[in-house]
């Protein structure tokens, strides 16, 4: 059994062993372990497809910032080994000069306003040369982050550590 108290969700949510929320977290230890496994599967999978681990970490930091979670953003960004994608972690960068504008426009929209996504958004990604498998990979990364960032936001309220 992994140490749930060291997982991103509990550390960033401010839930510590014996503190507020810890009994509930212990009841759901299995969920927290599975959450940790999912974090690994989207941020550093064995098969990254077109999106290397450093790019995933930078995108994760970007999406954390779109969610107002600066500390989580820094945690995701610290996973990067190099600096090739570091610029991506800044939501002000649109990727226009890096050939990634379609990918970034899509990721920002899925993170911020998934209700507004339509078939045309997927068609634009395909037209930019993104394969079906790589589209699914982008969605899983974005979708997992939506989950973890909301789990962290909720845990902070439970633990009484929300800013």
């Amino acid at each position: 059994m992994s140490d749930i108290w060291q997982t991103t969700s509990l550390v960033e949510g401010g839930v510590t062993e014996g503190g507020a929320g810890s009994a509930a977290a212990t009841l759901r230890a299995s969920v927290l372990e599975k959450t940790d496994a999912a974090e690994q599967a989207v941020l550093a999978p064995q098969d990254c497809g077109a999106w290397p681990a450093d790019m995933r970490a930078a995108l994760a930091a970007r999406i954390a910032r779109l969610n107002g979670e600066e500390q989580v953003a820094q945690r995701y960004a610290a996973r990067q080994q190099g600096q090739d994608y570091a610029w991506l972690a800044d939501p002000a960068q649109d990727g226009r000069d890096k050939g990634l504008v379609e990918v970034i426009t899509f990721m920002d929209k899925v993170a911020r306003a998934p209700k507004d996504i339509a078939r045309v958004d997927i068609e634009r990604l395909k037209a930019s040369g993104t394969t079906d498998a790589d589209i699914v990979r982008l969605c899983e990364l974005n979708a997992f982050l939506a989950y973890q960032l909301r789990l962290v936001a909720g845990l902070k309220l439970m633990a009484g550590t929300a800013e």
């Binding site: 998934p114 209700k115 974005n142 979708a143 939506a146």
Partner: peptide, 11 residues
């Protein structure tokens, strides 16, 4: 469902 919606509704 922040996760599930971003798969089901997007894909």
């Amino acid at each position: 469902f922040g996760w599930a919606n971003r798969l089901m509704h997007v894909l």
